[in-house]
Write a protein that binds this DNA or RNA. Sequence first.
RNA 1: GGGUAGGUUGAGCAGGUGGUGAGCUCCGCUGACUGUAGAUCAGCCGUCUUCGACUGUGGGGGUUCGAUUCCCUCCCUGCCCA
Length: 391
Amino acid sequence: MSGPFVSVSTRFEVDVAPPSDGSTRARAGRLVLPHGEVETPQFMPVGTNATVKSLSPAEVRDAGASIILANTYHLYLRPGHERIQRFGGLHRFMDWDRPILTDSGGFQVVSLGDLRVVDEDGVTFRSHIDGSVHRFTPEHAIAVQEALGSDVAVAFDQPVFPSSPREVVADATERTHRWAERSVDAHTRPDQALFGIIQGGLEPDLRAASTTFIANLPVDGICIGGLAGDESPAQRDATLDVVVPLLADDPRPRYLMGLGSPTDLLAAVHRGVDLFDSVLPARVARNGQLWIPGGRLNLRNSRFLDDPEPVQDDCPCLLCRRFSRAYLAHLFRAKELLAYRLATCHNLTFTLDFMARIRASIRAGSFPADMPDLRSRAGRSSAGEVTDKSA
RNA sequence: GGGUAGGUUGAGCAGGUGGUGAGCUCCGCUGACUGUAGAUCAGCCGUCUUCGACUGUGGGGGUUCGAUUCCCUCCCUGCCCA
């Protein structure tokens, strides 16, 4: 459907376009990358340090991941992108043979807080590891990603919290545009895709202008940044309702950065998003929260100490196939490493299976009618209210 | 049997030389987490009617206006000696 923009080995095919009646903007497609094909809508587990925390590559694959995200900033600091390059690139270094998207390090502009200073040319960081001073520019962020050899590189941007004052959002958005152009100019690898990032906060006019600006660049995909922060679901929906219609005829994938709860994923797919990533399923798993259809369980709660049932009885994951809730509850109390691994396996399996069901629903032409209404259910309520495991 | 050091809220402690002991770390309970400075963080963790109040320093007794503190006695624990 779309020809190459930057990468000659990347293309995006929309197999099922949104229905003409406007009932949903959800669509199903395939993103073809050097290391394989990614069915969309899709969720990318996050492997910041060239590992999805606590899992082996085989376990990530068995959970259903077809693409993962790694982080430019972290890998630049440790072990160093040049070292990874000497080892044959990120795929060989971490033994992951499917696609990898690298985040540019722009998000760390926000997440590292006081450890950084932004100027027009780039960002000066203080390492969160040893306090040493480093500098990222769009050109450097792209060079690092080319050395890592990810399938998809991402332009260096300046996100701000969605709730930031308009002047702050406008300033960061305009700088993000200039940095996007510089990222495009700096990018040289024809076997690596480059995605641009839209900013604009929650301001409709800034969002629209940013969408138009980024869409006019020769990039292979459109990232929607600056969300999955402190905005409300309604604000996020409203923002997507500004952005996606402007991309209705654009042949490239739309990637909402940072979104990860089932409720949020469903709502964003409905509004036309193709790709997602988030630390959420993995992080909450390490903290004891297990996702199941219709709700979630906090395995640190004492009520699970005598529960002989699996976390989810129809789940094929490493945890649910063999172990009881009681055993997992014990492992969490004992702070045994296996707890983190099993819980992460499950939440990623759940999330990726959920995305597979969304894709099947879209391809069957029945989306979103045959999807559970997570928003009114227990998707964000406490596990204590969940009693129906077959929901 | 003698000596000695102790006994503080589930555990381990801090403190306290006659006048305010509810402080810490575990454990435990609950919640949060969205492009990972996060296997983390926050709140609670004696009782109650919880912006406060009450109770609580092994038991009993004594001295004192007032005792965790001083005295007597008993119980319990560790160690040393017999």
